[in-house]
Design a protein around this nucleic acid. Structure first.
Length: 270
DNA sequence: CGCCAGGGGAGCT
DNA sequence: AGCTCCCCTGGC
Protein backbone atom coordinates (compact mmCIF):
# COMPACT_ATOMS: atom_id res chain seq x y z
CA UNK A 1 0.00 0.00 0.00
CA UNK A 2 1.41 3.31 -1.10
CA UNK A 3 0.26 6.70 0.18
CA UNK A 4 1.06 9.83 -1.72
CA UNK A 5 0.01 13.42 -1.74
CA UNK A 6 0.00 14.38 -5.38
CA UNK A 7 -0.69 17.80 -6.83
CA UNK A 8 -2.99 17.99 -9.83
CA UNK A 9 -4.06 14.39 -9.66
CA UNK A 10 -7.65 13.18 -9.59
CA UNK A 11 -8.63 9.56 -10.03
CA UNK A 12 -12.19 10.66 -10.68
CA UNK A 13 -11.21 13.02 -13.47
CA UNK A 14 -8.84 10.53 -15.03
CA UNK A 15 -11.51 7.85 -14.88
CA UNK A 16 -14.08 9.86 -16.81
CA UNK A 17 -11.64 11.66 -19.08
CA UNK A 18 -12.21 9.05 -21.76
CA UNK A 19 -8.61 8.02 -22.41
CA UNK A 20 -8.79 4.78 -20.45
CA UNK A 21 -11.65 2.36 -20.90
CA UNK A 22 -10.59 -0.11 -18.22
CA UNK A 23 -10.74 2.17 -15.22
CA UNK A 24 -13.92 2.18 -13.19
CA UNK A 25 -15.31 3.64 -10.02
CA UNK A 26 -15.86 1.03 -7.33
CA UNK A 27 -16.95 3.08 -4.35
CA UNK A 28 -17.30 6.69 -3.41
CA UNK A 29 -13.57 7.29 -3.45
CA UNK A 30 -12.20 4.05 -4.86
CA UNK A 31 -11.34 3.05 -8.38
CA UNK A 32 -9.95 0.00 -10.14
CA UNK A 33 -7.72 -0.03 -13.20
CA UNK A 34 -6.57 -2.83 -15.45
CA UNK A 35 -3.58 -2.15 -17.64
CA UNK A 36 -1.79 -4.80 -19.66
CA UNK A 37 -1.93 -7.80 -17.28
CA UNK A 38 -1.98 -5.71 -14.10
CA UNK A 39 -4.81 -4.83 -11.77
CA UNK A 40 -4.85 -1.97 -9.28
CA UNK A 41 -7.25 -0.52 -6.78
CA UNK A 42 -6.73 3.02 -5.64
CA UNK A 43 -8.54 5.48 -3.44
CA UNK A 44 -8.47 9.22 -3.09
CA UNK A 45 -9.50 11.11 0.02
CA UNK A 46 -8.77 14.77 0.25
CA UNK A 47 -5.35 15.39 -1.16
CA UNK A 48 -4.11 11.91 -0.43
CA UNK A 49 -4.08 9.03 -2.87
CA UNK A 50 -3.68 5.42 -1.81
CA UNK A 51 -2.45 2.82 -4.25
CA UNK A 52 -3.17 -0.72 -3.08
CA UNK A 53 -0.09 -2.45 -4.38
CA UNK A 54 3.47 -3.29 -3.41
CA UNK A 55 6.06 -0.57 -3.58
CA UNK A 56 7.96 -2.48 -6.23
CA UNK A 57 5.00 -2.57 -8.60
CA UNK A 58 4.17 1.05 -7.87
CA UNK A 59 7.68 2.18 -8.65
CA UNK A 60 8.18 0.00 -11.69
CA UNK A 61 4.75 0.35 -13.27
CA UNK A 62 1.99 2.52 -11.84
CA UNK A 63 4.07 5.61 -11.19
CA UNK A 64 4.92 5.76 -14.85
CA UNK A 65 1.41 4.72 -15.93
CA UNK A 66 -0.15 7.69 -14.12
CA UNK A 67 2.62 10.00 -15.32
CA UNK A 68 3.45 11.00 -11.76
CA UNK A 69 6.91 12.33 -12.52
CA UNK A 70 5.57 15.01 -14.83
CA UNK A 71 4.96 18.49 -13.47
CA UNK A 72 1.43 19.40 -14.54
CA UNK A 73 1.61 22.62 -12.60
CA UNK A 74 3.99 23.87 -15.25
CA UNK A 75 1.46 23.10 -17.98
CA UNK A 76 -1.31 24.91 -16.12
CA UNK A 77 0.93 27.91 -15.58
CA UNK A 78 1.43 28.30 -19.32
CA UNK A 79 -2.22 28.90 -20.05
CA UNK A 80 -2.98 32.32 -21.49
CA UNK A 81 -4.60 34.26 -18.63
CA UNK A 82 -6.76 36.06 -21.19
CA UNK A 83 -8.18 32.80 -22.47
CA UNK A 84 -11.16 32.56 -20.14
CA UNK A 85 -12.46 29.42 -21.73
CA UNK A 86 -9.23 27.44 -21.42
CA UNK A 87 -8.70 28.75 -17.90
CA UNK A 88 -12.11 27.42 -16.89
CA UNK A 89 -11.59 24.13 -18.69
CA UNK A 90 -8.21 23.58 -17.08
CA UNK A 91 -9.52 24.46 -13.64
CA UNK A 92 -12.29 21.93 -14.07
CA UNK A 93 -9.93 19.20 -15.20
CA UNK A 94 -6.72 20.14 -13.42
CA UNK A 95 -6.41 16.62 -11.98
CA UNK A 96 -6.23 14.95 -15.36
CA UNK A 97 -3.07 13.07 -16.30
CA UNK A 98 -2.16 11.78 -19.71
CA UNK A 99 -1.76 8.11 -18.94
CA UNK A 100 1.09 6.12 -20.43
CA UNK A 101 -0.85 3.19 -21.78
CA UNK A 102 0.02 0.18 -23.87
CA UNK A 103 0.32 0.75 -27.61
CA UNK A 104 -1.60 -2.33 -28.72
CA UNK A 105 -4.38 -1.66 -26.21
CA UNK A 106 -4.79 1.87 -27.48
CA UNK A 107 -4.82 0.81 -31.13
CA UNK A 108 -7.65 -1.63 -30.48
CA UNK A 109 -9.50 0.65 -28.09
CA UNK A 110 -9.59 3.59 -30.47
CA UNK A 111 -10.41 1.43 -33.48
CA UNK A 112 -13.46 0.44 -31.47
CA UNK A 113 -14.17 4.03 -30.44
CA UNK A 114 -15.21 5.26 -33.86
CA UNK A 115 -18.88 6.16 -34.19
CA UNK A 116 -19.33 4.77 -30.73
CA UNK A 117 -20.09 6.17 -27.30
CA UNK A 118 -17.95 5.74 -24.23
CA UNK A 119 -20.33 3.47 -22.35
CA UNK A 120 -20.46 1.10 -25.28
CA UNK A 121 -16.71 1.29 -25.92
CA UNK A 122 -16.15 0.12 -22.35
CA UNK A 123 -18.54 -2.78 -22.81
CA UNK A 124 -16.94 -3.79 -26.10
CA UNK A 125 -13.49 -3.85 -24.53
CA UNK A 126 -14.71 -5.73 -21.49
CA UNK A 127 -16.31 -8.34 -23.76
CA UNK A 128 -13.14 -8.60 -25.79
CA UNK A 129 -11.00 -9.09 -22.68
CA UNK A 130 -13.34 -11.59 -21.06
CA UNK A 131 -13.54 -13.62 -24.24
CA UNK A 132 -9.92 -13.54 -25.42
CA UNK A 133 -7.79 -12.13 -22.60
CA UNK A 134 -5.91 -14.26 -20.14
CA UNK A 135 -7.73 -14.76 -16.87
CA UNK A 136 -5.85 -13.46 -13.85
CA UNK A 137 -6.43 -13.52 -10.14
CA UNK A 138 -5.33 -11.11 -7.42
CA UNK A 139 -4.61 -12.18 -3.86
CA UNK A 140 -8.12 -11.52 -2.59
CA UNK A 141 -9.41 -13.98 -5.16
CA UNK A 142 -10.73 -11.23 -7.38
CA UNK A 143 -10.63 -12.23 -11.04
CA UNK A 144 -9.93 -10.02 -13.99
CA UNK A 145 -8.92 -10.38 -17.60
CA UNK A 146 -5.76 -9.10 -19.23
CA UNK A 147 -6.01 -7.36 -22.57
CA UNK A 148 -5.72 -9.90 -25.41
CA UNK A 149 -2.52 -9.55 -27.42
CA UNK A 150 -2.43 -9.45 -31.21
CA UNK A 151 -1.67 -13.19 -31.36
CA UNK A 152 -4.90 -13.94 -29.54
CA UNK A 153 -6.96 -12.01 -32.08
CA UNK A 154 -5.16 -12.55 -35.37
CA UNK A 155 -6.63 -15.99 -35.96
CA UNK A 156 -10.22 -14.94 -35.39
CA UNK A 157 -12.93 -14.47 -37.94
CA UNK A 158 -14.64 -11.11 -38.03
CA UNK A 159 -17.86 -12.68 -36.86
CA UNK A 160 -16.24 -13.74 -33.61
CA UNK A 161 -15.64 -10.13 -32.65
CA UNK A 162 -19.10 -9.09 -33.71
CA UNK A 163 -20.24 -11.31 -30.89
CA UNK A 164 -18.26 -8.98 -28.62
CA UNK A 165 -20.44 -6.14 -29.89
CA UNK A 166 -17.79 -4.54 -32.06
CA UNK A 167 -20.07 -4.41 -35.09
CA UNK A 168 -18.44 -3.30 -38.34
CA UNK A 169 -15.28 -2.39 -36.38
CA UNK A 170 -14.54 -6.12 -36.05
CA UNK A 171 -12.69 -6.24 -39.33
CA UNK A 172 -10.48 -3.33 -38.30
CA UNK A 173 -9.38 -5.13 -35.13
CA UNK A 174 -8.80 -8.49 -36.82
CA UNK A 175 -6.83 -6.90 -39.64
CA UNK A 176 -4.75 -4.84 -37.23
CA UNK A 177 -3.95 -7.96 -35.21
CA UNK A 178 -2.86 -9.78 -38.37
CA UNK A 179 -0.73 -6.85 -39.46
CA UNK A 180 1.09 -6.90 -36.13
CA UNK A 181 1.56 -10.67 -36.09
CA UNK A 182 2.84 -10.69 -39.68
CA UNK A 183 5.34 -7.97 -38.85
CA UNK A 184 3.79 -5.54 -41.31
CA UNK A 185 3.21 -3.24 -38.34
CA UNK A 186 6.02 -3.22 -35.78
CA UNK A 187 4.86 -1.96 -32.41
CA UNK A 188 8.30 -1.90 -30.82
CA UNK A 189 9.59 0.23 -33.66
CA UNK A 190 6.66 2.66 -33.58
CA UNK A 191 7.49 3.29 -29.94
CA UNK A 192 10.86 4.69 -30.95
CA UNK A 193 9.55 7.10 -33.60
CA UNK A 194 8.86 10.81 -33.43
CA UNK A 195 5.26 12.03 -33.44
CA UNK A 196 4.94 12.61 -37.20
CA UNK A 197 6.67 9.34 -38.01
CA UNK A 198 4.61 7.34 -35.53
CA UNK A 199 1.40 8.91 -36.76
CA UNK A 200 2.27 8.08 -40.36
CA UNK A 201 2.91 4.46 -39.40
CA UNK A 202 -0.37 4.23 -37.49
CA UNK A 203 -2.30 5.69 -40.44
CA UNK A 204 -1.28 2.64 -42.45
CA UNK A 205 -3.51 0.51 -40.26
CA UNK A 206 -6.88 -0.05 -41.92
CA UNK A 207 -9.53 1.77 -39.91
CA UNK A 208 -7.10 4.25 -38.36
CA UNK A 209 -7.67 7.84 -39.47
CA UNK A 210 -6.38 11.19 -38.26
CA UNK A 211 -8.32 11.33 -35.03
CA UNK A 212 -7.68 7.75 -33.97
CA UNK A 213 -3.99 8.03 -34.83
CA UNK A 214 -3.70 11.15 -32.68
CA UNK A 215 -5.44 9.44 -29.76
CA UNK A 216 -3.01 6.55 -29.98
CA UNK A 217 -0.04 8.93 -30.19
CA UNK A 218 -1.24 10.84 -27.15
CA UNK A 219 -2.43 8.07 -24.86
CA UNK A 220 0.07 5.33 -25.68
CA UNK A 221 3.17 7.02 -27.04
CA UNK A 222 2.82 10.12 -24.89
CA UNK A 223 3.37 12.43 -27.84
CA UNK A 224 1.82 15.40 -26.09
CA UNK A 225 1.92 17.46 -29.27
CA UNK A 226 -0.85 15.26 -30.71
CA UNK A 227 -4.16 17.13 -30.74
CA UNK A 228 -7.02 14.75 -31.54
CA UNK A 229 -10.00 16.54 -33.06
CA UNK A 230 -13.31 14.77 -32.56
CA UNK A 231 -16.83 16.12 -32.74
CA UNK A 232 -16.66 17.61 -29.25
CA UNK A 233 -13.35 19.34 -29.80
CA UNK A 234 -14.58 20.52 -33.16
CA UNK A 235 -17.59 22.08 -31.46
CA UNK A 236 -15.39 23.77 -28.87
CA UNK A 237 -13.08 25.10 -31.57
CA UNK A 238 -16.04 26.54 -33.45
CA UNK A 239 -17.47 28.16 -30.35
CA UNK A 240 -14.32 29.44 -28.69
CA UNK A 241 -11.48 29.51 -31.19
CA UNK A 242 -12.86 30.96 -34.39
CA UNK A 243 -9.34 31.88 -35.43
CA UNK A 244 -8.07 28.40 -34.61
CA UNK A 245 -6.58 26.96 -31.44
CA UNK A 246 -3.31 28.72 -30.52
CA UNK A 247 -1.14 25.67 -31.05
CA UNK A 248 2.00 27.78 -31.27
CA UNK A 249 1.58 29.02 -27.75
CA UNK A 250 1.26 25.48 -26.48
CA UNK A 251 3.76 23.94 -28.84
CA UNK A 252 4.75 20.48 -27.74
CA UNK A 253 1.91 20.01 -25.28
CA UNK A 254 -1.28 20.89 -27.16
CA UNK A 255 -2.48 17.41 -26.29
CA UNK A 256 -2.65 18.32 -22.59
CA UNK A 257 -4.82 21.31 -23.44
CA UNK A 258 -6.96 19.11 -25.67
CA UNK A 259 -7.70 16.90 -22.69
CA UNK A 260 -8.81 19.83 -20.54
CA UNK A 261 -11.12 21.00 -23.31
CA UNK A 262 -12.46 17.52 -24.00
CA UNK A 263 -13.15 16.88 -20.34
CA UNK A 264 -14.83 20.26 -19.96
CA UNK A 265 -17.05 19.79 -23.00
CA UNK A 266 -18.08 16.31 -21.95
CA UNK A 267 -18.69 16.80 -18.26
CA UNK A 268 -19.32 20.43 -17.54
CA UNK A 269 -22.11 20.52 -20.07
CA UNK A 270 -22.55 23.52 -22.25
C1' DC B 1 -41.39 0.27 -36.62
C1' DG B 2 -38.32 4.28 -38.25
C1' DC B 3 -35.06 7.71 -37.08
C1' DC B 4 -30.75 9.26 -35.51
C1' DA B 5 -26.56 10.00 -33.02
C1' DG B 6 -22.48 8.10 -30.84
C1' DG B 7 -15.03 10.85 -29.45
C1' DG B 8 -14.83 8.27 -37.87
C1' DG B 9 -12.95 6.33 -41.92
C1' DA B 10 -12.36 5.24 -46.85
C1' DG B 11 -12.57 6.65 -51.29
C1' DC B 12 -13.75 9.85 -54.26
C1' DT B 13 -13.30 14.88 -56.58
C1' DA C 1 -10.40 20.31 -47.95
C1' DG C 2 -14.77 18.89 -48.84
C1' DC C 3 -18.09 15.64 -50.13
C1' DT C 4 -20.64 10.99 -50.10
C1' DC C 5 -21.32 6.76 -48.53
C1' DC C 6 -20.46 3.20 -45.32
C1' DC C 7 -21.21 0.88 -40.95
C1' DC C 8 -23.38 -1.13 -36.12
C1' DT C 9 -26.12 -0.48 -31.67
C1' DG C 10 -29.02 1.53 -28.50
C1' DG C 11 -32.27 5.02 -27.23
C1' DC C 12 -36.38 7.39 -28.32
Amino acid sequence: MIRRTIEHFSLEQICVSGQCFRMEQKGEHTYSVIAKDKYLEAAQCGGETIFYCEEEEFESFWKNYFDLDTDYHAYLECIDPRDNYLIKAAEAGSGIRILRQDLWEMIVSFLISQQNNIVRIRRCIQNLCEEYGEEKEVEGGKRYYAFPGPEALAGLHEEALKACNLGYRSKYVVRAARAVVSGEIQLREIETLSYPEAKAELLKIFGVGEKVADCICLFALHHTEAFPVDTHINQALKNHYKRGFPKRRYRGFQGIMQQYIFYYELHMGK
